[in-house]
Simulated scan of single mutants.
Amino acid sequence: MTADTPSTDPLVTDVAIVGAGPTALFAAFECSMLKLRCVLVDALAEIGGQCAALYPEKPIYDIPAHPAITGGDLIAALDQQIAPFAIPRLLGQRVETLTGHRGAFALGTSAGTQIRAAAVIIAAGAGAFGPNRPPLDGLDGFEASGAVQYYVRRRTDFAGRRIVIAGGGDSALDWALALKDIAAKIWLVHRRPRFRGAPETLSQIDAACARGEIEKVTPFQLARLHGTDGALSGVELATLEGETRVLDADCLLPFFGLSTDLGPIAGWGLDTHRNTIPVTPSTCESSTPGLFAIGDVATYPGKLKLILQGFSEGAMAAHAIHPIVHPDTALHFEYSTSKGVPGSDH
Score class of each variant (00 low, 15 high):
45 A>P: 09
229 D>H: 01
12 V>C: 04
307 I>E: 00
199 P>V: 03
85 F>C: 06
208 A>I: 01
190 H>E: 06
230 G>Q: 02
319 H>A: 15
247 L>Y: 08
276 T>K: 13
63 I>S: 03
18 V>D: 03
275 N>Y: 12
342 P>V: 08
178 A>C: 01
265 I>L: 09
312 S>E: 14
210 A>D: 07
170 D>I: 11
87 I>M: 00
225 L>H: 09
252 L>Y: 04
123 A>C: 02
272 T>I: 13
128 A>L: 15
114 Q>K: 10
237 L>H: 06
295 G>Q: 05
65 A>N: 09
69 I>G: 04
284 C>S: 14
37 R>C: 05
106 A>L: 11
50 Q>T: 14
69 I>E: 00
221 Q>M: 14
272 T>N: 02
264 P>N: 04
233 S>F: 06
77 A>S: 13
289 P>G: 05
178 A>G: 06
226 H>L: 09
60 I>R: 07
238 A>T: 13
125 G>A: 08
185 K>Q: 15
207 A>R: 11
272 T>A: 05
213 E>A: 14
219 P>L: 02
53 A>I: 10
189 V>C: 05
11 L>F: 07
131 P>Y: 11
77 A>Q: 14
145 S>E: 03
276 T>A: 14
98 L>Y: 03
139 L>N: 09
183 A>S: 04
330 A>P: 07
148 V>M: 02
22 P>R: 00
309 Q>G: 08
241 E>L: 14
35 K>N: 15
110 S>E: 04
88 P>E: 07
158 F>Q: 02
9 D>R: 03
194 R>N: 12
40 L>E: 06
179 L>V: 08
176 A>Q: 06
294 I>H: 05
216 K>N: 03
90 L>N: 01
156 T>S: 15
182 I>S: 03
301 P>A: 09
117 A>M: 06
48 G>M: 07
